[in-house]
Design a protein around this nucleic acid. Sequence first.
DNA 1: ACCAAATGACAAACAAGCTTTACATCAAGC
DNA 2: GCTTGATGTAAAGCTTGTTTGTCATTTGGT
Lengths: 63, 63
Amino acid sequence: MNNRLKVLRAERDWSQQDLADRLEVSRQSVNAIEKGRYDPSLPLAFKIADVFEMAIEDIFQRD
Amino acid sequence: MNNRLKVLRAERDWSQQDLADRLEVSRQSVNAIEKGRYDPSLPLAFKIADVFEMAIEDIFQRD
DNA sequence: ACCAAATGACAAACAAGCTTTACATCAAGC
DNA sequence: GCTTGATGTAAAGCTTGTTTGTCATTTGGT
């Protein structure tokens, strides 16, 4: 899965830590997901979609 | 997370095994997800959305 | 009543997601 | 050159997701 986290963060000028705080996960999780080292769980994907006010499909794409 | 798998299967007259075959996962996984014992991974959620030709958000809802 | 298919559940084992801690690198500002 | 904030990575440990195997129960058809 690809994701647009880095861009979406940049658009809002959020650090990985800022996003991690909003998602209530560790900064390392945000980093790992952003770098594609693993995919978020479905609940976390929903939370991410909430935070960015977008559909999951508009944030994550199959590769 | 709630999900509409049972209904969506019923609409198509698919058994859990039928769906499992299409998703390329075990029947036990379909059963467990359907019964809410755990949530699918994000990649599997995407596959489910593909199979039903629906958005993830229209199949899974936060509870 | 019988049979077969479908469903629900559990256990053991392994894979993937997430946490904390910790360390290294990089860029910006002073 | 030093400090600070942001980023990338790694190890160890816990939790969650998925598999295979197995069994019990339910349901539909004949």
